[in-house]
Amino acid sequence: MTRWGMVIDLDRCTGCGACVVACRQENNVPVASEDDYYKGRNLDWIQLARHVDGEYPNTQVRQYPFLCMQCDDPPCIKVCPVGATYRDEEGIVGQIYYRCIGCRYCTSACPYSVKVFNWKKPTWPDGTDRRQNPDVSIRSVGIVEKCTFCHHRRQRAKEVARAEGRELNPSDYVPACAEICPAGAMVFGDLDDKGSDVHRLAEDPRALRMMEELGTKPKVIYLKRVAEAKK
C-alpha cells in the first residue's frame, strides 16, 4: 500500500524559504499583508519555524520547514463534526472545503497548530489572481484549509500514467515544496516502498518525528544531527 511521506533534512536546509513561496504559488494561498502576518492571520500551509537547539552558549538556530505532519493517526479528523477532514487510502489528510463549517475544532485539536482558517475573503491584489492554479480551488471565507501534499499533483500524475498505460513512477508526483527545494533537503515519496529514498532516510539514525510521544504517527520526518549541539 502506498503511504506518502516526506523527509526534511535540517542539516541541508538553508532556510531560504523557497518552499514557502512555491507552496503559495501552487496552492493559491493568498499572501498576507504585513499587518495580518503580525496578527497571526497568515494562511501559509508551510512556514519556517525558528528553533534554538541546545543550551547557551552552545546553541544553534535552525529553521524548521513546518507543514502538516500528515499524521497516520491524526487528532484533527476524529473531532470534525461533519467529517470534512479525513485520511485517504494513501495516507494524505485531506480537507473538503465545501463540507467544512468553520467550527475550528480541528485547528484547536491539532497539536502542531498547522491547520489554518480563512479569517476573511481572500484578496488578490494587482492582478495576482491571474497566477491562480486552476487545479486548486480558491477557498471561501470562514473555512479551514491545510497542506494536502499537493494531492492534485498526484491526481494529475496518475492520470498521465494511466493515459500512457504504465505504473506511477516515484518521480511523477512530488509536492511543490519538495520540487523547488534548492538544497535538496526535502525528499518525498512512498514510505512503504522499501526501495525509495524516503523510506531509507526515514530509517536514518538522525530521523526525528515531531512529538512522537503523542501517538499521532507523523509522516513528515525531520533529519537532524544532534551531536553538535551537545558539545
Partner: peptide, 17 residues
C-alpha cells in the same frame, strides 16, 4: 466560520466528534 452550513451536522454527522 460558515453558519450557513450549520445544518451539515445533521446531513453529514461524524459521530466520533
Amino acid at each position: 466560520g460558515r453558519p450557513d452550513r450549520a445544518f451539515y451536522v445533521l446531513l453529514h454527522p461524524n459521530f466520533r466528534s
